[in-house]
């Protein structure tokens, strides 16, 4: 499963659901807070990904620090999936 693709797809859906507008060209280095989602958007993103992937890495307490870039966000999910 391509986690990054899942996340990008979920971000699109959540943006629509939460009335946010995503910036174009989100890269690995793009800062999460600059992606266009606000806290509600991220809350929804995490909830949506939990539905799709079956886990929420941020409640597992395996995450020592919160991601700040899109790349880090993806990496956390990837790491959880690889376990």
């Amino acid at each position: 499963m391509n986690v990054e693709a899942s996340i990008r797809n979920a971000m699109e859906q959540v943006a629509e659901l939460s009335d946010c507008e995503l910036v174009e060209n989100i890269e690995q280095e793009t800062v999460l807070l600059d992606c266009g989602l606000d806290s509600l958007g991220y809350a929804m993103l995490v909830a949506q990904l939990e539905e799709e992937l079956g886990f929420d890495p941020f409640t597992e307490q395996q995450v020592t620090s919160y991601p700040s870039t899109f790349g880090e966000f993806v990496a956390i999910y990837q790491a959880c999936l690889d376990k």
Partner: peptide
């Protein structure tokens, strides 16, 4: 309410 790691609950 559904527990949410970002906002407490959704």
């Amino acid at each position: 309410a559904k527990k949410n790691s970002v906002l407490g609950s959704l």
